[in-house]
């Protein structure tokens, strides 16, 4: 009979300590400033604590959004990058797109279920640029008005149903 006893699972949540959390965000910011996806402009000054970013985006040439300007907001929880960032469109111009609600919430699987800590602000921006660029018809999601009235402020609280891979 081999002796085996249950090692207590380390219950306390271990996250990147403050220093490494900040270092990762700092590195992401630098590389985003250096090599932004097409149409993306980011200010290297994102305020004191790096947990809230504002990113400017211009619709790509030859797409339905050509020349339009959008603003994206990223919120990082202390559990980032194990926990996905909260990403929404903000400001006066929210893109009219079948996966973007008029309150700025975005239906995109990598922002919840398919998030991975190897993704970054850069890759998320690229996904959003590509999502906009592949759009064939500007329209709001079919359940827009109901969703906007009933949803939580935090899009991550929504139980998204990812069913349309075409756009």
């Amino acid at each position: 009979m081999a002796l085996k006893f249950n090692r207590n699972k380390h219950n306390s949540k271990i996250i990147l300590d403050g220093e490494r959390w900040e270092r990762r965000l700092q590195k992401e910011l630098m590389s985003l400033v250096r090599e932004p996806p097409p149409g993306v402009v980011v200010d290297s000054d994102q305020g004191e604590n790096l947990s809230l970013w504002t990113i400017n985006m211009t619709g790509a040439e030859g797409t339905l959004y050509e020349g339009e300007h959008f603003t994206l907001q990223f919120k990082f929880s202390p559990k980032y990058p194990f926990d996905s960032p909260e990403v929404t469109f903000i400001g006066p111009n929210i893109p009219v797109h079948p996966h973007v609600y008029s309150n700025g919430h975005i239906c995109l699987s990598i922002l919840t279920d398919d998030w991975s800590p190897a993704l970054s602000v850069q890759t998320v921006c690229l996904s959003i640029v590509s999502m906009l660029s592949s759009c064939k018809e500007k329209k709001r999601p079919p359940d827009n008005s109901f969703y906007v009235k009933t949803c939580n402020k935090n899009p991550k609280k929504t139980k998204w149903w990812y069913h349309d891979d075409t756009v």
Binding site: R20, R23, R24, K27, E28, P81, A118
Partner: peptide, 8 residues
């Protein structure tokens, strides 16, 4: 040789 998670 950077970690794919913390980037360090």
């Amino acid at each position: 040789f950077e970690c794919n998670i913390c980037l360090d």
